[in-house]
């Protein structure tokens, strides 16, 4: 009897890589992963950071998800916006979030943004750019507010405001013309919304609505659908089908439970 169960060690499996290369040469192309044409931004303000993202996920020129969530949880005081291959950003933010949680339980201290940054970059660097994850990482820890960007190859940038994704050119133009140092919370949120809207309207890969996360000392707030810049246009007509539109060609009923009448229970 087999009593041992082989549990996969985890991580990525490259068993089919060579086979897929041969298949590709023979004309069987690989399935395309969902690459989210995206606008994600982040900015520092007086006592925290604001992160923003659009909510469109595309597969080629088709909208795959009209309201997807691109602001990922990493720790109660750290969030990261993801651009690039949706599967990769989802997976690695989840992995790092789990690492950080274990680290918090082991040390009993609040997570630091630098810890998240190091975990992300070292992981991405190991995969040499094969994981298409570009992130905007923001949070507040004992050293105050921090904002970083992480590229798929594992390089980082530390800036007071930054953008990533296909809409980053549209979004950065808003920051480069309107950003100021030491903004108030509301000003920063307003600027992030404007930057995401620039991406939504001018970049076809970005669309739908604006998600925002505000992180301050001891407080993080995630606002789903903070602004919906273009309401859904109402249909002129209704396309409900009348009952009976689908023809019933034959009917058959079957009883799955056989009811047998027995003797009455003795309740005396």
């Amino acid at each position: 009897m087999v009593s041992r169960v082989d549990v996969p060690k985890g991580g990525f499996n490259f068993d089919n890589y060579q086979r897929n290369l041969i298949l590709q040469e023979k004309g069987f192309s690989l399935p395309k992963p969902t690459k989210t044409g995206t606008t994600i931004v982040g900015t520092k303000f007086k006592n925290g950071v604001v992160l923003g993202a659009d909510t469109r996920a595309t597969g080629d020129t088709t909208v795959m998800d009209k309201n997807c969530f691109k602001i990922h949880y990493l720790a109660p005081n750290i969030y990261g916006c993801g651009a690039g291959t949706a599967a990769d950003t989802d997976k690695i933010t989840k992995m790092v979030a789990s690492q950080l949680e274990l680290h918090r339980l082991a040390t009993g201290r609040e997570s630091r943004v630098a810890t998240a940054l190091t975990a992300l970059t070292q992981f991405l660097f190991r995969y040499q750019g094969h994981l298409g994850a570009a992130l905007v990482l923001g949070g507040v820890d004992v050293d105050g507010p921090h904002l970083f960007s992480v590229s798929p190859h594992g390089s980082t940038d530390k800036l007071p405001y930054l953008c990533q994704g296909s809409g980053s050119l549209a979004a950065i133009s808003i920051f480069e013309s309107q950003w100021r140092e030491n903004m108030e919370r509301d000003e920063a949120i307003e600027l992030v919304k404007e930057a995401i809207k620039a991406g939504i309207f001018n970049d076809m890969g970005s669309g739908s609505s604006v998600d925002v996360a505000v992180i301050e000392k001891g407080r993080a707030e995630v606002c789903r659908g903070m602004e919906v810049p273009y309401p859904t246009i109402q249909k002129v007509d209704s396309y409900k089908f009348k009952p009976g539109t689908t023809a019933i060609l034959s009917e058959s009923f079957r009883n799955f439970v056989t009811i047998t009448e027995g003797d009455a229970m003795d309740i005396s």
Binding site: T58, T61, T62, V63, M204, T232, I233, K235, V236, D237
Partner: peptide, 16 residues
């Protein structure tokens, strides 16, 4: 009406 609704729907899903 069919034409207008076709295009509002197509716009929801086709980015171009």
């Amino acid at each position: 009406a069919v034409m207008r609704d076709s295009f509002t729907s197509a716009t929801e899903r086709d980015i171009q």
